[in-house]
């Protein structure tokens, strides 16, 4: 394809990204570096601040979500579970956002519907983990649309296995952030991940690979223009996709372990659907 077409594709995906993802990297980095003035995030660093912040999270929940009754889990042990349920609600909403983004990739909705489902099932957790990176630094992560900053130490202090959930994402994110991608680069990279022709059970691989190839060309050109001094950035970025698959596999195993050990835990139906028979 001509360079002009590749640039148009890049602009289109960036616009879709801005439309469907409410917290951009630009905004997240401004919050993390304290450039938002009075709107500094609420910091959760211990159980006391979690309980204070929890009310804040619950107030901001989306209208069509059921509220978890506060009395159903009581005591300190239940704090983790309650927090985990909030994370699930946000993740389900994020899956919806990623689906809308996927549908905006030219040619995606013309693919076989079952293949679209397969691409989302296998791609969405990878996309969500990549999207966490801009929200993170070595000390913690923004949650709740950037209104809260939760410290890494606090997440590590939760009881097992909750304390094991985020640490691999921090390790990945800190390394990923060294690449210094911006939102327009991210949009293309997310599309490349979604259009992976090697997902198990795909019926018609060819058109998916053709779409991915075009987006890959667009990404390569974008990185050359946007990061002229960053050598081998395209290759380095593609290598991240291997690490990502391992993180997702470990994450899914951890959730499956949680399902067995936490009798009070209910997995969100959409997330259950995605994780069932996945790796």
């Amino acid at each position: 394809p001509e360079a002009a077409d590749l640039r148009a594709l890049s602009r289109h995906l960036y616009e879709a990204y801005l439309k469907y993802f409410p917290l951009t990297k630009a905004k997240a980095r401004a919050i993390l570096s304290g450039k938002t003035g009075d709107n500094a995030p609420f910091v959760i660093h211990d159980m006391k601040s979690l309980m204070e912040g929890e009310q804040f999270i619950n107030c901001k929940q989306l209208p069509n979500q059921e509220h978890q009754p506060q009395t159903s889990h009581s005591g300190m042990d239940a704090v983790e579970l309650r927090f985990f349920q909030s994370c699930q609600s946000r993740s389900a909403e994020a899956v919806r956002e990623v689906t809308e983004f996927a549908k905006s990739i030219p040619g995606f909705i013309d693919l076989d519907l079952n293949d679209q489902v397969t691409l989302l099932k296998y791609g969405v957790i990878e996309v969500l983990i990549i999207m966490m990176a801009p929200l993170m630094n070595k000390d913690g992560t923004l949650i709740s649309y950037g209104q809260i900053f939760m410290t890494r130490e606090f997440l590590k202090s939760l009881r097992k296995p909750f304390c094991q959930m985020m640490e691999p994402k921090f390790e990945f994110s800190v390394k990923f952030n060294v690449l210094e991608l911006d939102d327009s680069d991210m949009a293309l990279f997310l599309a490349v991940i979604i259009l992976s022709g090697d997902r198990p059970g795909l019926m018609n691989v060819k058109p998916i690979e053709q779409l991915q190839e075009t987006v890959l060309h667009s990404l390569e050109l974008q990185l050359k223009l946007n990061h002229p001094d960053s050598l081998q950035l395209f290759a380095k970025l593609l290598q991240k996709m291997t690490d990502l698959r391992q993180i997702v596999t470990d994450h899914v195993h951890l959730i499956q372990l949680l399902k067995k050990t936490e009798i009070d835990m209910c997995l969100h139906p959409l997330l259950q659907e995605i994780m069932k028979d996945l790796y």
């Binding site: 609600s89 909705i109 489902v117």
Partner: peptide, 20 residues
Amino acid sequence: KEKHKILHQLLQNSTSPVDL
């Protein structure tokens, strides 16, 4: 198809919010 009911819905219902 039943196994991925919500994903199918998300893909087919344009932008109308599916009951998550």
